[in-house]
Simulated scan of single mutants.
Amino acid sequence: MKFPEPLVSGRLVKRYKRFLADVILDEDGAAITAHCANPGSMLGLKEPGSRVWLSQSDNPKRKLKYSWEVMEADGALVGINTAHPNKLVEEALVAGRIGPLAGYHSLRREVKYGKNSRIDILLEDEGGSKTYVEVKNVHLMRQQGLAEFPDSVTARGAKHLAELADMVGEGHRAAMVFLVQRPDCGRISLAADIDPTYAAAFEVAQAAGVEVYAIGCDVRLDGIDAVRPVDISI
């Protein structure tokens, strides 16, 4: 995934109200407010003074011109925009980078299923067999080299796990793909101390036959690509 235009650098002042971030731009010292497309807690990724990079939009209908895309944390570039993971995983699937999910005839995104939900990615083979793929963004790192999910309580995430298990019960394949938007983690685990309910739901889903995969990203200032296998320690 390439950013359409060069990113603008700055320093984070604060992230607040979940979707807002105040930034001082490097170029001219202007103080601006950027959109933060990330509903999580961003634990460890909102330290004031952190170096950040923003995309710009010329859309006059947007309230905020800038969007927070990348930041520097723990000596690495980290992608924080949770609007990108589905696209990044789609590109990885098309390129065959997630072996067990490769070779499908068609791929569709945001398809209705379950109880008033939409699956992130639906894979279908020529015979009509379906695989339901849920994507979760990961960027929490509390121990060097170990990514963890989630970074806050996620009742919605537990609901998604139950719905994937339901699809397996109906005779389909279902998979959870964790997308690690940072290059410095080779393993992923569950942050059960942050959300024990999610961890319990994950165990139930795995026992029901939901598959689990993880792929890591190379994060650059010109784009992000999901290219690296990440070991699952769950």
Results as ranks from 00 to 15, higher is better:
Asn116Arg: 08
Ile80Asp: 14
Ile98Tyr: 00
Leu107His: 05
Val52Phe: 11
Val135Pro: 12
Lys63Leu: 13
Leu88Glu: 08
Leu77Ser: 07
Asp120Thr: 08
Asp120Met: 13
Trp53Gly: 12
Ala95Cys: 13
Val133Glu: 05
Asn116Gln: 11
Ala76Ile: 04
Ala95His: 07
Ala73Asp: 10
Ser129Leu: 02
Gly99Gln: 11
Ser55Tyr: 00
Glu124Phe: 04
Val138Lys: 02
Ser129Phe: 14
Lys130Val: 05
His84Met: 12
Glu72Tyr: 01
Asn59Trp: 01
Leu140Pro: 06
Ala83Asp: 08
Asp125His: 03
Asn86Gln: 08
Ile80Met: 03
Gly49Cys: 02
Ile80Tyr: 05
Gly103Asn: 13
Lys63Thr: 11
Ile119Arg: 01
Ile119Cys: 08
Tyr66Glu: 06
Val133His: 10
Arg51Lys: 09
Ser55Gly: 12
Val52Cys: 11
Trp68Ile: 04
Thr82Pro: 02
Ile119Val: 15
Leu54Asp: 11
Val133Thr: 06
His84Leu: 09
Met141Gly: 12
Lys87Gln: 04
Val52Tyr: 09
Leu93Trp: 02
Tyr113Asp: 10
Lys112Val: 09
Gly49Leu: 00
Leu88Ala: 06
Ala102Trp: 09
Ile98Asp: 01
Lys115Asp: 14
Ile98Cys: 07
Pro60Leu: 00
Asp58Thr: 04
Val111Leu: 06
Tyr132Phe: 15
Ser55Phe: 08
His105Lys: 07
Pro85Ile: 07
Glu134Tyr: 09
Glu91Ala: 11
Tyr104Glu: 03
Pro85Arg: 00
Leu88Thr: 03
Glu110Ser: 10
Lys46His: 09
Asn137Trp: 06
Val138Pro: 01
His139Gly: 07
Ala73Ser: 15
Tyr104Gln: 04
Gly114Lys: 01
Leu140Arg: 13
Glu124Leu: 01
Leu107Ser: 00
Lys61Cys: 07
Leu123Gly: 07
Trp68Pro: 09
Val135Ile: 10
Asp74Arg: 15
Val133Asp: 00
Ser117His: 14
Glu124Ala: 14
Val135Arg: 08
Gly75Lys: 04
His139Asn: 14
Gly114Cys: 04
Asp120Phe: 06
Ala102Asn: 05
Leu101Arg: 05
Trp68Asp: 09
Gly99Ala: 15
Ser129Glu: 14
Gly127Ala: 10
Pro100Glu: 11
Leu140Ile: 01
Asp120Asn: 08
Tyr113Arg: 08
Ser50Pro: 10
Ser129His: 14
Ser50Met: 12
Leu101Phe: 07
Gly114Trp: 12
Arg108Ile: 01
Leu54His: 11
Leu123Gln: 07
Gly99Phe: 11
Lys65Gly: 13
Glu72Arg: 05
Thr131His: 09
His84Tyr: 02
Val111Ser: 10
Gly96Tyr: 14
Asn81Pro: 00
Trp53Glu: 01
Val138Glu: 08
Pro48Asn: 12
Val78Gly: 03
Arg62Glu: 04
Gly127Ile: 01
Lys112Asn: 00
Glu69Thr: 03
Asn59Met: 01
Lys61Leu: 13
Tyr104Phe: 13
Gln56Lys: 11
Glu124Tyr: 00
Val94Pro: 04
Ala83Asn: 12
Lys63Ile: 01
Tyr104Ala: 11
Ser129Gly: 03
Gly75Cys: 00
Lys63Gln: 10
Gly99Leu: 07
Ala92Gly: 14
Pro85Tyr: 00
Ser55Met: 00
Glu110His: 09
Ala83Arg: 14
Leu123Cys: 03
Val78Cys: 09
Ala92Phe: 08
Tyr113Lys: 12
Asn116Phe: 15
